[in-house]
């Protein structure tokens, strides 16, 4: 597979480590009500779609960026690649 890195262009997937669903960015608020349930769902339940899937890839043998790759689980076609940090910031994650 080839991942079109936003900064570095097309790179062989062999340079990456893949972790799974990009929903892992959305770590729940530990102080919110129902946090135990929220953490259980966060850590264990997955949509696992047949089709478009947003997932986390880490450029371990590259610039060490975590990326959010939007890829079809049916054809493997990659529709979009973003810097995970930007995605996290856009979701309002900070400190």
């Amino acid at each position: 597979m080839i991942i079109n890195h936003p900064l570095l262009g097309p790179r062989d997937a062999a340079e990456f480590y893949v972790m799974g669903d990009a929903d892992l960015i959305n770590r729940p608020d530990p102080d919110a009500e129902g946090a135990a349930e929220a953490f259980y769902e966060y850590a264990y339940l997955r949509d696992n779609p047949a089709g478009e899937h947003r997932e986390l890839w880490y450029h371990e043998q590259g610039d060490r960026s975590w990326l959010v790759v939007t890829r079809s689980t049916l054809t493997h076609e990659i529709m979009n690649v973003e810097m995970a940090r930007d995605v996290a910031l856009a979701k309002g994650r900070g400190q």
Partner: peptide
């Protein structure tokens, strides 16, 4: 292979 898929095929690595 390590990535989520339903495609019943894998890659070279």
């Amino acid at each position: 292979d390590g990535y989520n898929t339903y495609a019943q095929r894998g890659n070279l690595p």
